Amino acid sequence: MSYEAWIILTGSLVGLTCGITGCFLILRKMTMLADAISHTVLLGIVGAFLISHSLDGIFMLVGAAAVGLLTAFLVQLLDTGGVQSDASIGVVFTSLFAIGVLLISLFAGNIHLDVDHALMGEITFVPWDTVPLFGVEGVPKAVWMLGFVLCMNLLIIILFYKELKISSFDPAMAAAIGLPVLFIHYLLMGMVSLSTVASFDSVGAILVVAMLIVPGATAYLLTEKLSVMLVLSGVVGVMSAIIGYYAAVWFNVSIAGSMSTAAGVIFTLVFFLSPTHGLIAKKMVRRKYSAEN
């Protein structure tokens, strides 16, 4: 594959992996928790490096998953302790992210981890960082990681689709019929954490947040069926990556920033033009209702 194709494939895998996971965050009204986790995983990555002295993918996945679950646990703990949910997210998010930044400054100054890299990423370097696996040479490490996490997320969604669906739409009913609501909650947080760290090194936290939230929000405006929402979210994520890449080349700007912008543009179009939930459609329904009455 060409240099350009690897970058587009990486961005598309980020859009798919984060997009389908983000649908459940949209339904649960937990999008800001995704923002928090996408930043606090920096602590997990630094911690994994300090323990293992390696930036191999498996160590980063384990470290990020652990800190992602810790973030969700601390937010839940503060929330049940009487602190407002948005304040809980703010306290945990800033505290753990700040600890990660301090650890980078103190112990990881000689490696390629830094705050700017963590926030913006550098997808243009992805094709050069290759890892041979299963006898296949020349495949970027980011593609292997994203492909693995995507397959794992899809497997979890298939195996726990009913539980995820019911607990997302009606958690009280899910608890009443005996579904393990807390387990499903932390399972989803683990999916978010793994999706974040798989995308983190190549595209940075900004694009991760965009892909976790915007494709799902876009799909939410287009359908009322969860299965269709998951497919549409993945399609929007891939479209954002492709359009964003070519726009970045055309205007000579940041690729990750351009992909995030493309996702925002697609959402804006759908927000106005959606046949059921779009702003124009709603105004037309109001006018029709006013005319009839």
Rank of each mutant, 00 (worst) to 15 (best):
D86W: 02
G63H: 08
L150P: 14
S12W: 00
V136W: 08
S193D: 15
G178L: 09
D79E: 12
P180L: 01
V270M: 06
M211D: 03
P215C: 01
K162I: 09
T276E: 15
I8F: 00
V115S: 11
Y289S: 13
V265F: 07
V209Y: 02
I243N: 00
A36G: 14
L188F: 05
L27G: 08
G138A: 10
F73R: 09
H117K: 15
L230N: 05
V208H: 01
L33P: 06
G82T: 09
V131E: 14
G278R: 10
T94D: 03
T223S: 11
A217Y: 01
P171M: 00
T276P: 12
T130I: 08
V41W: 04
A48C: 07
I206K: 00
L69V: 12
S2C: 02
A205R: 01
V46T: 10
S88Y: 03
T80P: 07
F267I: 09
I213V: 05
V101S: 10
K141C: 07
G237T: 08
V14P: 10
A256P: 03
G22A: 07
G234Y: 01
M189F: 00
L106Q: 15
M229L: 06
K162S: 06
L55E: 15
V238K: 12
V62T: 14
I58G: 15
L182H: 06
L33M: 12
T71P: 04
L69C: 10
E137Q: 11
F107I: 05
V235K: 04
I8E: 11
D116A: 13
L70N: 02
L159P: 05
W250P: 00
W144Y: 10
M284I: 08
G278F: 06
L42P: 13
G135P: 15
G244L: 01
G11D: 10
G190A: 08
I206G: 05
V91G: 03
V253D: 00
F169E: 15
V14W: 00
